[in-house]
């Protein structure tokens, strides 16, 4: 597999702030790659640098092995699904989708035929004559997708494309996008602040914070072995044990991440450490039990039909050694 997009110490500074701070990153051809980070972390700027809408202040971006600094966005084999979809409000849906062919000088019948095909692919056949304002959010999103695919890009960039949709539609689109990417076989680069999306959709993803890549890996790798406290907190709501607490539980003085679903509650004195139940939140299929251990708390996910100790009672916490992950750095 070859590298589709390569970041080589790429930085993007604005007047006072550094949006992207010396990022190195390889995105493979044909993979579904996600960039996950909180808002303002620089992930959208990364996307704009790949598409060419923005340019790095230092470093290089290689696209299929070619340095891109002299290639404007209109000549990159890359298209974008914008966060606000950026549909042209004055053009019919069909003409929106056909726009990429229009500017290439493709004749009208041909570009309309092709646009119809793409509308069919995103399950919007028959919507071609409508105006974007007459569509629902989910439909607009599909139009934006069809429009971005009409030029047969080798890389498709998606900037939080599901952010504006409601939960059910979002889940449906997650699946559809994944299927689409697999059938097209092209690279998808997907920006999101939703860790669930990154985990469920991507082949690999990068966690970005304050303009830097904190960790890159497959969802399993990152979920099970977060490299830093930030990652542990951001990906899945892991417990993070301070070195002091960790040494009381394990005898190792490292920051340690511990996923709540592997923690088992028991009677006092029967586990690694004892604490007091602080609160119990009912989550439907399970209960989230917060256990107080001096200054810190550890959360445990317990099956809802299992009896749990009431709030205020003393409990022990236990887990297997492979369920925890010792982090190399803070």
């Amino acid at each position: 597999m070859s590298v589709a997009v390569k970041f080589d110490t790429v930085s993007r500074r604005f007047d006072t702030e550094v949006a992207v701070d010396g990022i190195d990153l390889d995105i493979q051809e044909g993979e579904f790659f996600a960039m996950l980070g909180p808002s303002g972390s620089g992930k959208t700027t990364c996307l704009r640098l790949i598409s060419g809408i923005d340019r790095p202040t230092s470093g290089h971006i290689e696209i299929f092995g070619v340095r891109s600094e002299n290639i404007p966005p209109n000549r990159r084999p890359i298209n974008t699904v914008f966060q606000d979809y950026a549909l042209f409000p004055h053009l019919k849906v069909l003409d929106n989708v056909a726009y990429g062919l229009l500017v290439r000088g493709v004749a009208k019948p041909e570009r309309h035929r092709e646009a119809e095909n793409l509308l069919e692919m995103v399950k919007l056949q028959g919507f071609g004559q409508r105006m974007p304002a007459q569509l629902s959010g989910g439909q607009r999103q599909r139009v934006a997708l069809a429009r971005a695919l009409i030029n047969k890009p080798r890389v498709l960039l998606l900037d939080e494309p599901l952010g504006a949709l409601d939960l059910k539609l979002r889940e449906q689109m997650q699946e559809e996008l994944k299927t689409l990417q697999q059938s097209l076989g092209i690279t998808f680069v997907f920006v999101t602040h939703d860790q669930g999306e990154a985990l469920s959709m991507s082949d690999r993803f990068a966690i970005i914070n304050e303009g830097k890549v904190v960790q890159v890996g497959s969802p399993q790798e990152i979920y099970q072995s977060p490299r830093t406290r930030f990652v542990a907190h951001f990906v899945g709501s892991s417990n993070v044990l301070s070195p002091a607490l960790s040494s009381r539980c394990n005898g190792v003085e490292n920051w340690t991440s511990l996923r709540p679903e592997v923690v088992v509650l028991g009677d006092p004195g029967q586990g690694r450490i004892d604490g007091k139940v602080k609160s119990i939140r009912y989550l439907g299929a399970s209960n989230y039990v917060s256990v107080e251990l001096g200054e810190e708390t550890i959360g445990a996910l317990v099956n809802a039909n299992e009896m749990t100790a009431p709030v205020g009672s003393a409990v022990s916490l236990n887990w297997t050694a492979d369920a925890q992950h010792l982090m190399d750095e803070e």
């Binding site: 598409s51 060419g52 809408i53 404007p72 966005p73 209109n74 000549r75 890359i78 298209n79 974008t80 914008f82 966060q83 606000d84 950026a86 549909l87 042209f88 409000p89 726009y99 990429g100 229009l102 500017v103 290439r104 429009r147 971005a148 009409i150 030029n151």
Partner: peptide, 19 residues
């Protein structure tokens, strides 16, 4: 992002202005 979308889809500056 509308103007950016136009460039992204392959339009030149003149085409973006016109269309």
């Amino acid at each position: 992002s509308m103007i950016e979308a136009s460039f992204d889809l392959g339009a030149s500056g003149f085409q973006t202005f016109r269309y």
